[in-house]
């Protein structure tokens, strides 16, 4: 997997899926349409300020609450390059991986990154570097199996491959 490089957006602890993707848009099932409502209620300017290729940096238990897949879908289809957090809620973590959205579990990350810093993430090596401050840190890389899934673009392409469909 290539090195991920982007600008950081900082989020707090316990960002729940209602904050990421409001429940009133749950009936939308078209992936391309979901980014229109990303963070709408609580961070309404995120969509105008952030750009595809940016990186979300958050505290603990990112993606907690309801299991709606659209939370991960909206982030992925907005074009966020990676979500780095102290920890993730289980179903969000799975949904992200299955949708091919790169994520990294890096405890304490917020103490090393400020909003707008340029950072690089090497998922396979477990290395993160803050280019703005010049500091680097290591983290436990995700298991090989999960990296492969993300690399293949998620579970749908991986399943197609497994079934010999392309």
């Amino acid at each position: 997997m290539e090195l991920i490089k982007g600008r950081a957006w900082i989020f707090p602890d316990d960002v729940n899926t209602d904050v990421i993707y409001p429940g009133r848009y749950m009936s939308i099932t078209d992936a391309e349409e979901t980014p229109k409502y990303l963070f709408e209620t609580v961070y309404p300017d995120f969509r105008s300020k952030a750009k595809p290729g940016d990186i979300i940096v958050a505290g603990k238990y990112f993606g907690c609450g309801s299991s709606r897949e659209q939370a991960a879908t909206a982030i992925r289809y907005f074009g966020i390059a990676c979500v780095v957090a102290y920890s993730f809620a289980r179903i969000f973590y799975r949904n992200a991986i299955n949708l091919g959205l790169p994520i990294a579990v890096v405890p304490g990350i917020r103490e090393h990154v400020e909003e707008g810093d340029e950072i690089t993430v090497d998922l396979a090596q477990g290395k993160l570097k803050n280019l703005t401050t010049g500091k680097g840190l290591s983290f436990e890389p995700l298991p090989r199996f999960i990296l492969d899934l993300i690399n293949q673009g998620g579970l749908i392409p991986a399943t197609r491959k497994k079934l010999g469909l392309g």
């Binding site: 309801s66 299991s67 897949e69 991960a72 179903i91 799975r94 949904n95 299955n98 949708l99 998620g154 579970l155 749908i156 991986a158 399943t159 497994k162 079934l163």
Partner: peptide
């Protein structure tokens, strides 16, 4: 595809909630 699928644990099933995409893969494989 519902978070409270854990209810089945009351009978000793490994019962858990999953996302729609992964359920699609289960339906397929």
């Amino acid at each position: 595809t519902d978070s409270h699928t854990t209810t089945g644990g009351a009978l000793g099933a490994f019962a858990t909630g999953i996302g729609a995409t992964e359920m699609a893969a289960v339906w397929a494989t």
